[in-house]
């Protein structure tokens, strides 16, 4: 793989079976087997033959409707979901914000949770402990909240801590589900600045967002996915414009606002 690439995706397909039955229990399985019924499953083709190269220092935005395969793609790049076909090569340390609650146990303090999240992502205790104050400061928690149980946090505070943990890992590649890094306007500005700072250090960022303004604002490249296939790959404004046309709502400025 060429040195300048952070991620190379070769003919990636991801399929998985989901159980159609609502209750996945042993009891149901035994009942079904006794009646000679087969297990009802559906195969979801989340990603179909996707090929893409992403150089270091890029900020890639992914747009697409719900169920387009955006989250699946992110998880497969993070190594959480295995490819069914094809290959993903990742060059660099990954940090993710794909699900809220990075090791978050609501009964424990923010500080304890940050330590757990850091250890899960492979940091040593000393490394993460030396960063806890920095993370707490960046998350902009009110006084003393860092040592209070996470269950006392507002959802905004929760999201800010999660975002701060993800960016503080000094990742080479940051995978971000933007809907999760919920914060107010001032935190949003701060997080954008942080992300710009990361790209200035030639780190790579991939953002999934329904807030199309964010994609235009931050990214230097965007892809549009629909039902597991890559529809368009190009400059963010062009991709966003075509995506909006596809949604048949034109390019009204209101659609550029955060949804």
């Amino acid at each position: 793989m060429p040195e300048n690439l952070a991620i190379r995706i070769e003919d990636l397909s991801i399929k998985y079976k989901i159980n159609v039955d609502t209750k996945r229990t042993l009891k149901n399985a035994v009942m079904r087997a006794s009646k000679g019924e087969a297990v009802r499953t559906r195969t979801v083709e989340a990603i179909k033959h996707l090929t893409m190269d992403l150089p270091h220092g890029s900020v890639l935005g992914i747009v697409g409707a719900n169920g387009a395969g955006k989250s699946t793609l992110m998880r497969s790049i993070a190594g959480i979901l295995p490819p069914t076909e094809g290959r993903i090569i990742v060059n660099g340390k990954i940090s993710t914000l794909l699900a809220l609650g990075v090791g978050f146990n609501p009964a424990l303090s923010g500080r304890d949770n940050i330590i757990l999240g850091g250890l899960a992502s492979g940091m040593t205790r000393e490394e993460i402990e030396s960063k806890t104050d920095e993370i707490a400061e960046f998350a902009d928690l009110p006084d003393g909240f860092i040592d209070m149980p996470v269950r006392t946090y507002s959802s905004g505070m929760y999201g800010r801590v999660a975002f701060s943990v993800a960016v503080s890992m000094k990742p080479d590649i940051l995978l971000l589900d933007e809907a999760l890094s919920a914060g107010d306007a001032s935190f949003k500005e701060k997080s954008f600045n942080k992300m710009r700072e990361l790209c200035a250090e030639a780190r790579t960022i991939i953002i999934v967002s329904h807030a199309l303004a964010t994609i235009n604002d931050l990214c230097d490249r965007a892809i549009w996915m629909n039902k597991g296939t890559l529809v368009q790959d190009g400059k963010p404004d062009a991709v966003v414009e075509d995506y909006l046309k596809f949604l048949k709502v034109g390019t009204l400025p209101s659609n550029y606002e955060d949804m």
Partner: peptide, 29 residues
């Protein structure tokens, strides 16, 4: 931490040596 390759290996084992190394590395977790 650096170059990682993800390939299909469903229903069979992933490479065990790196798995166990990573397991040991994150025992503190």
């Amino acid at each position: 931490p650096n170059l990682q390759v993800f390939e299909p290996h469903k229903a069979s084992l992933p490479p065990l040596v790196p798995y166990l190394k990573e397991f040991w590395k994150r025992r503190a977790f």
